[in-house]
């Protein structure tokens, strides 16, 4: 209940934040511009639109997760509004979870808006070419939601990481740098396995494998390319990476909770 109160308030604060609207605006702009770019190619217009659309949702979603996520925690500390919440009967971990849920709701709403924008542009594109709307490649259109769903799970992980960094840093710039670094590394984790497999058994190999298993592996959530090319993404794969995401989030939130619990609010 208190968690929900904090979540609701976080959402309310987020949707009054100008950064959010700027990012959302640019994302929708990108998706719209894809319509223009699509006219430049021969055939496969919808592929280009889906490519650009999913990339925009991913990138701008990540930016929203990182900057809003960090902003909302650090601002509480900088502006000392957190004193007033933690002096109420709210355990610190509940504060963390509440903030996190609030951010997730915000991101979900934004992703749904961007996803709807993508569909809108796709429909406009079909109409423009005089195609029968009811005769399109429905499989790909439906699969887009698989990609968007996994983007959302990825952003859940990124948000948790952003939150963790802002629980022990009091500079939003530093937290942002850490989180962006984690985001990039998270997309390169898959290469570690490739390198690890090549190595003979050694300390180096164990180290690399350790990082492979415990750094966030954000590539798990990336099925954009497959969806665009109509490669089947199985429900069991989606469930498995969802489970991965949830486990990872639990660890990160737990760590944040422990750090936060020990922290002095100066």
């Amino acid at each position: 209940m208190k968690v929900l109160t904090i979540a609701r308030n976080t959402f309310r604060e987020a949707i009054r934040d100008r950064i959010l609207y700027n990012l959302l605006f640019f994302a929708l702009l990108m998706i719209a511009v894809s319509l223009l770019l699509a006219t430049l190619t021969v055939g496969e217009q919808s592929k280009i639109i889906i490519d650009i659309g999913l990339a925009s949702i991913n990138i701008f979603g990540a930016l929203i997760a990182i900057f809003l996520g960090i902003g909302l925690i650090i601002k509480e500390i900088e502006k000392r509004t957190i004193y007033n919440i933690l002096s109420k009967p709210v355990p610190r971990y509940q504060f963390i979870i509440g903030k996190y849920l609030g951010l997730l709701i915000t991101i979900m709403v934004n992703i749904i808006i961007m996803g709807a924008g993508l569909y809108l542009i796709l429909i406009i594109n079909e109409l423009r070419w005089g195609h029968d709307i009811f005769n399109v490649n429905l499989d790909i259109w439906l699969d887009i939601w698989k990609a968007i769903y996994l983007i959302f799970i990825e952003l859940m992980v990124v948000t948790a990481i952003a939150l963790m960094f802002s629980t022990f840093s009091s500079s939003s710039t530093l937290s942002a740098i850490f989180t962006i670094a984690a985001y990039i590394i998270g997309h390169l984790t898959e290469e570690l396995r490739l390198i690890g497999n090549k190595l003979p058994d050694s300390f180096m190999k164990s180290t690399i494998n350790f990082f492979y298993y415990f750094l966030p592996n954000l590539d798990n959530f990336n099925v954009k390319g497959k969806v665009v090319h109509g490669i089947y993404v199985s429900a069991s794969y989606i469930s498995l990476v969802t489970l991965y995401g949830l486990l990872y989030i639990s660890v990160v939130l737990l760590l944040s909770g422990v750090i936060f619990q020990r922290r002095d609010f100066k």
Partner: peptide, 12 residues
């Protein structure tokens, strides 16, 4: 509790 020089969510 009222903190020193309190800041509150000023959009409320």
């Amino acid at each position: 509790f009222l903190p020193e020089q309190p800041y509150f969510y000023d959009y409320l």
